[in-house]
Design a protein around this nucleic acid. Structure first.
Length: 460
RNA sequence: GUGGAUGUAGCUCAGUUGGUUAGAGCACUGGAUUGUGGUUCCAGGUGUCGUGGGUUCGAGUCCCAUCUUCCACCCCA
């Protein structure tokens, strides 16, 4: 048999050790912040029933769902006529009943409805798992990627929005990634659509103005025309797009503009309150009320969030919003929720490209024991055990290889300390401890090694 | 889903109008140095030229298909 060339499916990746350690650093930081705000962990299966997934992400989303072929004789019960119809969409529903999850929000909604009697509301959960999309891959766009979601469901208080903003602020502060947190409110957007006489075209309007940063004012105008907004409405919208002023001036400007729209006034009041909460929370990252922030997902109904890195352009690295009736499709209405999702893969890219990973992030072992043969092993093992008991990650080189080879191993793996155990050391009851970074080497009694290392490691 | 680029050693890339046995640097392995790494010097294998067809006396080079990666749409993390 010919040897086959190893490969993985399009848009998927292996995560080698160094990358894993860096990714884990991101995941642990994010998770640590979630926990500190009282969110609880949840995991759901990689695959869901296709009926749970279909129709939740629009036509585009349905196309991007990975479908899982039924097991066994998947053609059973399908008549010849159907098979020959060549209608892939219809046929796929018969031969595939499961699909890979497309995001974590819909499975979460499914979970909440399914377990509504066991859940205490407001329910605060976080979920860090991969999702799959049959998208065409590009840089920073994969077919398998991780999402870190935090949501609170069963409370419509704006304090939740404020808390999520604080979480975003803290995560990126801890990761040392300066960001801009952009906020807006779908009700404000709806109000704007209403007062410019395009209430019916709210969705078209938001999709177009969402692209402002990318295609500019002229581009947006062209897009608006293309999407069927009349010239009058566009003329009225322009001052909104062009508006520049302080936050308080912006609120006043909108207050006048949205006077005639009840929805708009409500949205504006929500924004005013949220910004007020945030002022009292001592945020360290930049927060802006951005009228041109729209976000595509249809189910958002209130506050919307989007976060971009200041030092590296890669699109949004975190986003979310309030959805008033996500669980309605599963038969549980009137439950409001709000949540955000962190894009770990993109955060990784930002941190890598802006040099935010320190050497320590990729370090696993602190001490390596170097020895030269079977005779030394009996002296090495108790010492290594003592270090591990002291909480120091310790390795013993498995082969009595040349010193150079063992040193090189420590070097390659970024191990900062090496303990040499040879005939001389054993004879004197001492060990040689070498700092691989400075090249400094000291000799000390074997019994004092653990204490000494603990002391100098604590100082680092 | 639409349109466009790309692929040569583990990595970054050379490779002439199609011509005989496909190259460099880095990395890797061994040695100089039987107990002191990162520097240096020497030696060494780096390979179905992405894959499958086709044109040709002859294809890494030209043509077609396919896959990969990347880019612009679409959408999004």
């Amino acid at each position: 048999m010919a040897t086959q060339r190893p490969s993985i499916p399009k848009g998927t990746r292996d995560f080698p050790p160094q990358e894993m350690m860096r990714r884990n650093h991101i995941f642990r930081t994010i998770e640590g912040v979630f926990v500190r705000y009282g969110y609880q962990p949840l995991e759901t299966p990689a695959m869901e029933n296709l009926s749970t997934l279909l129709g939740k992400y629009g036509e585009e989303g349905d196309r991007l769902l990975f479908r899982i072929l039924n097991s066994g004789d998947f053609l059973r019960g399908i008549d010849r006529e159907e098979l020959l119809s060549m209608d892939a969409r219809q046929l796929s529903l018969k031969i595939a009943e499961k699909g890979l999850r497309y995001d974590l929000t819909v499975p979460f909604a499914r979970f909440v409805v399914q377990h509504r009697n066991e859940i205490t509301f407001p329910f605060k959960r976080y979920q860090i798992q991969p999702v799959w999309r049959a998208d065409r891959p590009q840089k920073g766009r994969y077919r398998e990627f991780y999402q870190c979601d935090v949501d609170v469901i069963g409370s419509s208080s704006l304090l939740n929005e404020a808390e999520l903003t604080m979480i975003i602020d803290e995560v990126f502060t801890r990761l040392d990634v300066p960001v801009t947190i952009r906020l807006n409110n779908r009700k404000v957007l709806a109000g704007i659509a209403e007062v410019i006489g395009a209430g019916e075209k709210m969705r078209e309007m938001t999709v177009a103005i969402d692209k402002l940063a990318k295609i500019g004012k002229e581009g947006v105008v062209a897009e608006l025309q293309e999407r069927g907004l009349d010239g009058e409405s566009i003329d009225e919208l322009l001052p909104v797009l062009e508006y520049e002023g302080s936050e308080s001036e912006k609120l006043r400007f909108l207050h006048n503009l949205l006077d005639a729209s009840e929805t708009g006034r409500r949205g504006l009041e929500e924004m005013r309150q949220l910004l007020d909460h945030l002022r009292q929370s001592g945020l360290r990252q930049e927060v802006v009320f951005d009228l041109t922030l729209a976000r595509g997902l249809d189910y958002y109904t209130g506050t919307i969030f989007e976060v971009t890195a200041k030092e590296w352009e890669i699109g949004s690295i975190c986003g979310g919003g309030r959805y008033d009736d996500l669980t309605g499709i599963f038969g549980m209405s009137g439950v409001s929720g709000v949540g955000v999702s962190f894009g770990a893969d993109r955060i990784y890219d930002v941190m890598l490209n802006t040099g935010k990973f320190s050497e320590e992030t990729a370090r696993t072992t602190t001490v390596l024991f170097i020895h030269f043969g079977a005779g030394e092993i009996s002296h090495v093992l108790p010492l290594a055990a003592a270090l591990r008991r002291a909480g120091i990650a310790t390795e013993v080189y498995p082969d009595p290889a040349k010193l150079k080879k063992q040193m090189n191993y420590a070097n390659q793996k970024g191990i900062p300390y090496v303990v040499l155990m040879g005939e001389d050391e054993i004879a004197s009851g001492k060990v040689s401890l070498r700092n691989m970074q400075s090249g400094e080497q000291i000799s000390l009694p074997a019994g004092e090694l653990a204490e000494y290392l603990k002391k100098i490691l604590a100082k680092e």
